[in-house]
Amino acid sequence: MTRHIVPVRTYVSVYAVLIALTATTVAVSRIDLGEFNFIVAMTIAVIKAVLVIMFFMHVREASALTKLFAGAGFFWMAILIVFTLSDYLSRGWLPLGQWWR
């Protein structure tokens, strides 16, 4: 099995970007963007997560099979979130209470 050797420079740069993004999160939290508060915070968080997975967890150089399994983890989390929201977002769609009357 061959192992790709990642130069230290890459790790340091990714680390710097992560710190910068953390600083951005803190900075943005001081400004009220209305509806975009949540969107901005989540976007930064997702970028950071992707950087960690790709570089620190070496998924970028991994085999297609490893990528598939890493993707499956996210797909399964999406199942959890989407189907749970399918309950929360649809409460009250069907006015069952009035059918009884």
């Binding site: 189907f83 399918s86 309950d87 929360y88 649809s90 409460r91 009250g92 769609w93 069907l94 069952l96």
Partner: peptide, 15 residues
């Protein structure tokens, strides 16, 4: 399929 454990728990009719 997990929501079939929640039919009478207060889950929405749609779910």
């Amino acid at each position: 399929v997990w929501g079939h454990h929640l039919f009478v728990a207060g889950q929405s009719m749609y779910a």
